[in-house]
Amino acid sequence: MEEEILYNQSFQIRGRDFVNGGSVSVQIKRILKELGVKPEVVYKVSICCYEAEMNVIMYADLGTLDFTITFDDVIITLEDEGPGIENIELAMQEGYSTATPEIREMGFGAGLGLPNILKNSDDFKINSEVSKGTKLFFKIHLN
């Protein structure tokens, strides 16, 4: 059954754009707060979005984040063009990372991103094709 969409917006994320890194998630957080969504849901969504957004910035070339609110959920899909993930099972392990020293100097690449999205979301799917890109989907219940 198709759920009724109450709000939808798409955002572009450019790879290696560290200066604006996080700005999409901050915008999403503001939208959710303005709509009066419960604080714990706002935090969960914005933490997950931030992790996902930074993954695009750190590893991919370009990403499109689609943000949807239905009666029951906040749904995020993020599709990127980039190197993809060779071993998703490894990438889901806490502490596993392929980050460069440059990324680590920025305070990221601890291998916690994807596990943190999994932990904070109610539904999580990831598909990736090496040399093409990654598609990430997660859902967080509003109640």
Binding site: G22, V26, K29, I47, Y50, M106, N116
Partner: peptide
């Protein structure tokens, strides 16, 4: 910042040696 996103309690005071734009973005989140 990965640790902050994973383990820091919302609304904490942050002590860090990292000075960049990302610290502010994480602080806002």
């Amino acid at each position: 910042m990965s640790d902050v996103l994973k383990s820091c309690k919302i609304g904490s005071l942050l002590i860090t040696g990292l000075v960049n734009q990302q610290v502010l973005q994480v602080s806002e989140i």
